[in-house]
């Protein structure tokens, strides 16, 4: 691969929760690193990050992610209420002749209030909304975003994880960046998928898996991204015909099927890659076939 073009970015997503996104992401990363690629694995499932847990890596000494939070300078505030009017989230209440009242839970951190304040009375309280951890496991560099408990601004963390990934990549010249996303098909997932070269949608053949696959493939198409479908626990009872129809509907292709395999749970409780401890297990063999397919896809 031509390194001068920068790293290739693979996003692993899926729609439904618990389909095996993180298992696939972690083991693909490990596999590529074993065959000599420089790999960064970025966990963008910031409100339930599991990459570190699956690899037994510690999340310590995280770098704080901060976001704008208005703080009112009492001496400058003229109680005009412009900030309250500008805030579309209704996070600021102007009581006559009082300092504005802030509802921090509603604040998006956009800074509109400070832009409109005529007396520069709004300062940046720099609220900590989460952390980014940089570590390494089994030859894979890890970048993990974590949303602080009771905070809602997961997008701020995801944006920071992605920026940091690109910065690190300039230094370390990764061949591959693998992004693990949250379940669902909402804005956090859209932001995580954005700008990736290839999207892998990991699903299962159950009605829930198929229903949510339909949504995530629609999102990938809206973002004009190249995608393929991985069916995990492929031998679960389900509807394979419908699954293929959904793939066809979104011009996606079923790239690999991973069978139900007890070794996967074993690898989880050991917090080690499946491909390391059980390289010949059926699931591990499927993931190495998947890696080959993905690499071919990226080299096109």
């Amino acid at each position: 691969m031509d390194i001068s073009r920068g790293p290739k970015i693979i996003a692993v997503t899926g729609g439904k929760g618990g389909t095996g996104k993180t298992t696939v992401a972690v083991n693909l990363a490990f596999h590529f690193s074993q065959i000599g690629k420089k790999v960064l694995l970025a966990d963008c499932d910031v409100d339930a990050p599991s990459v570190a847990t699956l690899l037994g890596a510690e999340m310590r000494n995280g770098k704080e992610v901060r976001q704008f939070l208005p703080v009112f300078d009492e001496s400058r505030c003229i109680r005009c209420g412009e900030c309250s009017k500008a805030c579309r989230m209704h996070a600021i209440l102007q009581v006559p002749d009082k300092i504005p009242l802030l509802f921090p839970d509603l604040c998006l951190g956009c800074g509109a209030c400070s832009i409109v304040c005529p007396t520069n009375a709004i300062l940046d309280g720099k609220k900590v909304v989460g952390w980014i951890y940089e570590t390494e496991a089994y030859g894979v560099d890890l970048l993990i975003g974590e949303l602080k408990l009771n905070e809602r601004e997961s997008e701020a963390i995801i944006r920071e994880v992605k920026e940091r990934a690109m910065d690190l990549s300039k230094e370390r010249r990764y061949d591959l960046i693998i992004i693990d996303t949250a379940p669902g098909a909402h804005c956090d997932v859209a932001l995580s998928l954005k700008d990736s070269d290839f999207v892998l949608a990991v699903t299962e053949p159950t009605p829930f898996g198929i229903h949510d696959l339909d949504l995530i493939l629609e999102l990938a198409n809206l973002l004009k991204l190249k995608h393929a479908v991985v069916v995990n626990r492929a031998d679960l009872p389900g509807n394979h015909r419908l699954l293929k129809e959904i793939c066809k509907k979104h011009s996606s292709r079923l790239i690999e099927e991973i069978p139900v395999d007890d070794n996967v749970v074993q690898s989880h409780v050991r917090s080690r890659p499946l491909m390391l401890d059980f390289p010949n297990s059926p699931a591990a063999r499927a993931i190495s076939r998947l890696a080959k397919e993905v690499w071919e896809e990226l080299s096109l």
Partner: peptide
């Protein structure tokens, strides 16, 4: 799923919150 914005809104105002989990490290965390 998760513990972000939609999960916070789901829990807010509930009299009872029942957690479903499975015995794996990621689910426990």
């Amino acid at each position: 799923p998760g513990a972000g914005c939609p999960a916070i809104s789901a829990v807010s105002g509930a009299t009872h919150a029942i957690m479903v989990t499975e015995p794996t490290p990621a689910a426990f965390r």
